[in-house]
Computed example of a mutant assay.
Amino acid sequence: METLLQPGCGKLGVRGHNQQEAARMEAQGVSTAQLRIGDNIEAWHRGKLFHSGRVTGVVPALDLFWILDARTGARKLLDPEALEIRHMEAPAEPLLGLSPA
Rank of each mutant, 00 (worst) to 15 (best):
E26D: 15
I85C: 07
Q28M: 13
P80S: 10
I41M: 04
P91R: 03
A101C: 06
N18F: 11
M88S: 11
L5W: 10
L77W: 08
T32D: 02
L49R: 09
E93K: 13
P60G: 05
G16S: 13
H17E: 03
L98A: 15
L95I: 15
A74H: 15
E2I: 08
K48I: 11
L5H: 13
E2W: 07
A61R: 08
L64D: 00
L83H: 15
A23T: 11
L4N: 08
A33H: 03
R75T: 15
S99Q: 12
H17M: 12
G13T: 15
N40R: 03
L68C: 01
R71I: 10
V30F: 08
S31A: 10
I37M: 03
T3N: 07
G47C: 14
P60W: 08
V59K: 00
A92T: 14
A27T: 05
E2L: 04
H87C: 11
L5P: 03
L35H: 06
R86Y: 15
P100S: 12
T56R: 03
L12T: 15
R71E: 14
A33R: 00
K11P: 03
N40S: 14
L96G: 09
V55D: 01
A23Q: 11
E42W: 10
G97C: 03
A27C: 07
P60K: 08
H51T: 09
M25S: 10
G38N: 02
A70S: 13
L77R: 03
T3R: 00
K48F: 13
T32L: 00
P91I: 07
V14N: 03
L62F: 00
P94A: 08
W66C: 14
Q34M: 09
R36A: 09
I85E: 09
A22C: 11
A82W: 02
P60R: 08
T3P: 06
H17L: 09
L68A: 01
L62W: 00
L78Y: 02
G8P: 03
R46G: 00
R36C: 14
D79V: 06
F65V: 06
D79R: 07
